[in-house]
Simulated scan of single mutants.
Amino acid sequence: MERGSSWPVRRDDQEDTSMIASKLHPQNIRSSNKWKAALQLLAGMERHGPKPCVSTYNTTIRACNAGDQWAVALELLAGMERNGPKPGVSTYEAAMKSCGHCQQWAVALELLAEMRQHGLKPNPNTYYAAIRACVKCQELGVALELLAEMRQHGLKPNPSTYAAIISACGQCRQWAVALQLLAQMKRQRLQPNVNLYSSVISTCVTARQMDVVFQLFEEAHVHACMSSEPDKVVQERLELFRAMGCE
């Protein structure tokens, strides 16, 4: 579907918009069928008032994300660009998450470029959404380019961003890249947790880099003792790899 094309939104004059609003409580928004109720609520507000604000559009786009309706999310974004209210950074982030959820990584990158054209500056969360979209499609090279771009713009990636890319390294069997990212985290004083170490270790095991594996286990053990995470998790996985004859 082309950006900006018309999307058939049902507008039921008899619909009780307040009742639909209660259905869109944050606790229920993840349900896959809530996007239809969200569209009905938005349509009712457009026709009868009050005029929907950016937050209302953001909530509706997030509902589309939960329902795998990335094309509907894009149409809502296009409608905001045409008629207002103007989308904000959070709006683009929600739309990119919807694209990523449906493995539309190229569209997510288009949105990242589009928000700049509208004078909006991407933040770490919007970059994370774009990177997640790339990771879901195993576009490791593009994800790494986005990570470098973040740093060029003075934005500090959060641990979740590194974890997503390191996960892609495992899928693409790029153990050396995973190690580089782990080292980069340490230089930025970001504390890797046990799960992140486990992801790097699994990547190295697949590549039969066992010397590196046991070095990482030792590091993870130290970090686990320094944090609130139980170091027995690391030890149990070490015993598992030994049982597999990987020493």
Rank of each mutant, 00 (worst) to 15 (best):
S199K: 07
A133H: 07
N65S: 05
S198C: 04
A163G: 06
G4Q: 12
V234T: 10
S22I: 03
Q104V: 12
A130P: 11
R10T: 15
K121E: 03
S98G: 09
G119I: 00
L182A: 06
D231I: 06
S202G: 15
P157A: 13
R173E: 10
V200H: 05
V135A: 02
L216V: 12
A133I: 06
G49C: 05
M150I: 02
D12P: 04
F214Y: 04
Q171C: 14
L39C: 11
S6H: 10
W7C: 12
I166K: 01
T91Y: 00
Q209D: 06
D211T: 14
P87S: 07
Y128I: 00
L76K: 05
G84M: 05
A143F: 02
S22Q: 06
S202L: 10
S32Y: 10
I61M: 02
E218S: 10
D68Y: 06
Q103Y: 14
N65I: 13
Q171H: 06
N193S: 04
W35F: 08
G154N: 02
E75K: 10
A63Q: 05
P85V: 05
L76A: 06
G154H: 00
G67W: 03
G84E: 04
L111Y: 03
P124I: 00
T91P: 00
M96D: 08
A63D: 01
K23Q: 13
C137F: 00
P159D: 13
W105H: 11
Q152L: 11
V222Q: 12
G154S: 02
Q215H: 04
N83F: 14
W70H: 14
E236S: 09
F241N: 03
A164H: 00
D68I: 06
G141V: 03
G4Y: 05
Q180D: 15
R11M: 10
P26S: 13
C137Y: 01
A108E: 02
D16N: 12
K156N: 14
V72I: 11
P85R: 10
G84R: 03
A66W: 09
Q117C: 10
R208D: 12
G245L: 03
L182P: 14
L147F: 06
R173F: 13
I61H: 01
S98P: 12
D12F: 02
E139Y: 03
E110V: 08
W70M: 08
I29D: 01
A37S: 11
L41R: 04
G100L: 01
A63Y: 04
Q103L: 09
E145D: 07
R82Y: 06
D231A: 12
S18L: 12
E46N: 08
A176C: 13
I165K: 01
L42G: 06
V233G: 12
M96W: 02
K97C: 14
R132S: 09
C134M: 05
L216Y: 03
A106F: 11
W105V: 07
A224K: 03
K34R: 11
D68F: 09
P85G: 08
G4H: 09
